[in-house]
Amino acid sequence: MTRIICPDCGHENLAGADECVRCHQPLTQEETFVPQNELERSVAYDRIGRLDIRDPVCVSPETPVGEVLRRMVAARTGCALVMEGTQLVGIFTERDALLRLSLDRAEWENRPVRDFMTTPVETLELEDRMAFAIHRMAVGGYRHIPILSDGQVVGVVSVREVFRHLTRLLEQD
């Protein structure tokens, strides 16, 4: 389901809503939007699926956090998705490693990642627009957002993929 963000309060509304269900500001278009270049068009209209979505590092809730760290480093990625079967149950990022793990590694090395992960996880859909991903990163301070399609995880989008995309577009203009 496509969603639209309220420009006033940031609430996510279902597409087609005439006003924001939270702040009641109108969501209808008062002006015609004419993108002036490829970058403007892409940010406004392109779906997240246009980004190079990366294969995530997936671990189980019982995976020892020491092993999760090593897998993240090996995959050169800043996050791991914690999966129970095909269900996404948590996310563990390099920021969590810095903020939640003590300097005494004996305290955490063999403990399950479920004790340190963030849950529930904020996700977006492949069909959501690029502007949406950028908005979510800005508001939540998220560097990594898992992407779903038909309820299944298909990858992760990070600030890096957004910037690569913007750079490609700038080089075209």
């Binding site: 496509t2 639209i4 939007f33 940010v43």
Partner: peptide, 21 residues
């Protein structure tokens, strides 16, 4: 990078979020 992402969002016009799908 988040500083840049936040700048972009602050400077998106309302229209970016309320476009027809």
């Amino acid at each position: 990078a988040i500083n840049i992402i936040q700048w972009l969002v602050e400077h998106f016009p309302r229209a970016v979020y309320t476009l027809p799908p």
